[in-house]
Design a protein around this nucleic acid. Sequence first.
DNA 1: GTCGGCTTCTAAACCGCTATAGCTCTTGGG
DNA 2: CCCAAGAGCTATAGCGGTTTAGAAGCCGAC
Lengths: 341, 341
Amino acid sequence: MGNRPTIADIAKRVGVSPGAVSFALNGRPGVSEQTRARIVEVAREMNWRPHRAARALGGSQAGAVGLVLARDPHTLGSEQFYTQVLYGMQETLSARSFAVQMQLVRDTTAEIALYRDWSSEHRVDGLVLVDLQVDDPRLTVIDELNIPAVTLGPRLDGALPSVWADDSEAMITIVDYLAALGHRHIAHVAGPPVYRHTAQRMAALRDHAISRGLDVGVSVPTDFSDAQGAAATRTLLSRRDPPSAIIYDSDLMAAAGLGVALELGVRVPHELSIVSFDDSVLTRIVHPQLTCLSRDTYALGAQVAEVLLKAIADPSARQSVQSETPKLVVRGSTARAATQR
Amino acid sequence: MGNRPTIADIAKRVGVSPGAVSFALNGRPGVSEQTRARIVEVAREMNWRPHRAARALGGSQAGAVGLVLARDPHTLGSEQFYTQVLYGMQETLSARSFAVQMQLVRDTTAEIALYRDWSSEHRVDGLVLVDLQVDDPRLTVIDELNIPAVTLGPRLDGALPSVWADDSEAMITIVDYLAALGHRHIAHVAGPPVYRHTAQRMAALRDHAISRGLDVGVSVPTDFSDAQGAAATRTLLSRRDPPSAIIYDSDLMAAAGLGVALELGVRVPHELSIVSFDDSVLTRIVHPQLTCLSRDTYALGAQVAEVLLKAIADPSARQSVQSETPKLVVRGSTARAATQR
DNA sequence: GTCGGCTTCTAAACCGCTATAGCTCTTGGG
DNA sequence: CCCAAGAGCTATAGCGGTTTAGAAGCCGAC
């Protein structure tokens, strides 16, 4: 309810027209340097801040970008990954006084509905799409809504600018590392195969295992929950021919898998090596600590923000930048494969 | 860039004035039921959505509430708690087409600066304050900005409406439970004592231990990080007279503490019982699973949203509601105290 | 038949800022 | 000395809603 000063108040104080004040405060030509200095000074004195809605109404921007996470409420909240990305985005965006409209929804349908709402209400100037699916219904909608957007995930040779990582290469890094330790039978507890990055990892494991002459690399799909991660592990370990190493698509599932191994009396890392595709505190509080792929998620968020801002400024320029490839951090959960039983 | 229909377009189609359309669509008197029906129908047909900025400018609301989490970037992202609260808030708020402006910042100073920005830019209609401090500088600012706000945390007999939980009672529940198991020496790995809830828990442990005739209940303050949680545990366990039970203010620290116990060869729960003040997946993926206080955080978020909406609608009515008291969920990390050594 | 009062609607101002057209004054060229 | 060009400003029209004052039509009452 505070009586915020408006541009008109400043104009009155300085003795110029509101238009002049607008010019001055937005750093555009039309006022002398002298007048500009005076206006800027008074504006600061009066503690003036632009009224977002008024600006947005003047045909221009809402000053916000949207990020929607579609998650089963139960699986929710464990992802340090997106929290960090969000943090990186916010630090970059708030410097340009953009806000991030983040919302958690149940599924992709709700996500799409939200995009439509936000777009028609002019709530956001751009969107960040994460968790790309193999045949992603969101892409059509984005196209239809004609709103700037950037994808975060695997490479997407299509319409949208993106910040992408090479999931195949990441998988190959892990497989090579495990192969060098003598592992020949490597399994993979994957996410849902509808996700592009999951599909890519599965394919990479299969292909690379073949080309390196290893046993066929089996991927078990899950819903990313700790329960299914545990179940998948149980299944794999009770096979006649259990793997000597398991790669997990998330650190939560890796931790759950570790628990199952302990429970079954399978010693980690001596009898089973575990690698997680994600890094977070979780990998460091379990015992043994988990070997995993790690990357600077904060920087990733900042990168996403940059690309999105460019896309907003110039929707025709659709650049794609590659993000830093995750690096393998070796901890206690991996070791040389036990000699063949 | 989509050419969204405006109220004027609808007015033209129906053959009435824009004002009438506004009345009709906002369900206020001034139009006949017949006309209203026609207008609503055409609006739906044309897929009309209010332009947020225009609404906000017309003197009324921004249609958003703010939630800021002040966190050290390193400690960040493990809190399933706030993610769930956020989810509960969003489900309730989006039904009334309010958005949640969530932002992560480094510290309270940045948080306050953000409140000022949001308020002066008219970005939010209300705020949710979490992590209340003993002498909280935010309260003055909220008062000064004269913006509706609700606090989430311990009871606060002051100006602001709140959704509060009784941390003392929660602590007493735990202590009673442990005492019944025969534990006489109970320690507490706390958060930073600047937080009211931490201070309250510390006081409750101390007082209640005395009144129940137990050994003095020591609280070790930390910064909520896994590292300090581990360090505190190490300190406690290497005392001449180690506690037989430790209560942790967060599940992350509890998990870290569990790791330390294992490492030191202290068997959980036989030689050491562990209780966490928070519940999340984390408590279920470690071994043994952690006994903890659990509550419906989703419902809590919904409750916060309700109270905030009421405060926005009528800033003079400052109600406070008590949230459900957390319930103790017994899992594998607690057991009868070993007989005195 | 006139008047008050109700319902139902219109016209117009307004929210705070941006953007454009145009006005005034100076300056320099021919 | 006049005109064109440019700098520096003002006036004004939006943006898409909300909100108020008031007009028109209809009713019943006196």
